[in-house]
């Protein structure tokens, strides 16, 4: 369960957000420059809000008036960046294990093997390639694999589908939804697209100029509803 209630003063406006999500996908939508990426940065711990509190599964990461802020590296939150941010000097496999290796004492904790995760995202055959030898869709899969390898309690995805062609987009959208159902951790997905919203969202938050416009919750869809929604999209 992720609880967010924060304010962050930005040069042009004040970002205000207040929402709670349990299991499921929350779609964060709104026009460009509305503060969506800033909100993700606040949740992940890359920047600190000015007011409010953030907690995940009962663990407080940030609370106004409290001096200690849990740094990003200790939050155990996966983050898939808009430009993927795959390390260009490492192979796909090295990228994928980056979050597991070198973090002392954590290694035994992980139950998943790299191959399982690569297999799940269908990128096993790419493991020795460098990021510049991958297509956009492949990069996206690697970025998701890298984030999931650390077995996060929450996954943030910043416009994960925006740079992909329509076909790859539809496929990856479907896989994202399945992935969330399998991992059973909350996903926060930033998107502009109505189609993405329709298919992915269990819950929606709209941001306009930093103000939270509304929060819409709908009952988690069953797989049949999902295929119905997909079928409808194809007819559109």
């Amino acid at each position: 369960m992720l609880e967010v209630d924060i304010k962050k003063y930005l040069p042009d406006f004040c970002l205000e957000a207040h929402f709670t999500i349990g299991d499921g996908i929350m779609v964060l939508s709104g026009p460009s420059g509305a503060g969506k990426t800033t909100l993700l940065h606040c949740i992940s711990g890359l920047i600190a809000p000015d007011w409010g509190h953030i907690s995940l599964n009962g663990r407080t990461f940030f609370a106004a008036g409290q001096k200690y802020i849990v740094p990003a590296r200790l939050r155990n939150i996966g983050y898939v960046f808009q430009d993927y941010a795959l390390f260009p000097h490492m192979t796909v496999k090295q990228n994928a294990v980056y979050g597991v290796k070198g973090c002392k004492g954590k290694q035994e904790r992980y139950k998943l093997s790299v191959l399982e995760v690569l297999e799940m995202l269908k990128i096993t055959h790419l493991q020795n390639r460098y990021p510049d030898q991958l297509s956009g869709g492949e990069k996206q899969r690697v970025a998701i694999a890298r984030a999931l390898m650390t077995e996060p309690d929450l996954l943030l995805l910043d416009e994960p589908l925006s740079a992909l062609d329509d076909q790859t987009r539809a496929q990856l959208r479907r896989e994202l939804k399945e992935l969330q159902r399998r991992w059973k951790i909350p996903f926060v997905v930033v998107t502009h697209s109505r189609n993405d919203l329709k298919v992915l969202a269990d819950q929606t938050v709209f941001l306009v100029n930093g103000k939270q416009y509304c929060q819409v919750t709908k009952v988690a869809e069953q797989t049949s509803d999902l295929s119905f929604a997909l079928g409808q999209r194809e007819r559109d």
Binding site: S44, G45, L46, P71, A72, R73, L74, R75, N76, I77, G78, Y79, F81, D83, A85, F87, P88, H89, Y98, G99, G102, C103, K106, R146, A147, T150
Partner: peptide, 26 residues
């Protein structure tokens, strides 16, 4: 690119590890 360093942080790296695995090699 700042996002490489940010990604390393969200993957559990200390600032020192970010430096010698990401910033310095690039």
């Amino acid at each position: 690119d700042k996002n490489y360093e940010r990604a390393a942080r969200t993957l559990g790296s200390s600032e020192w590890r970010v430096f010698y695995t990401v910033t310095l090699p690039l």
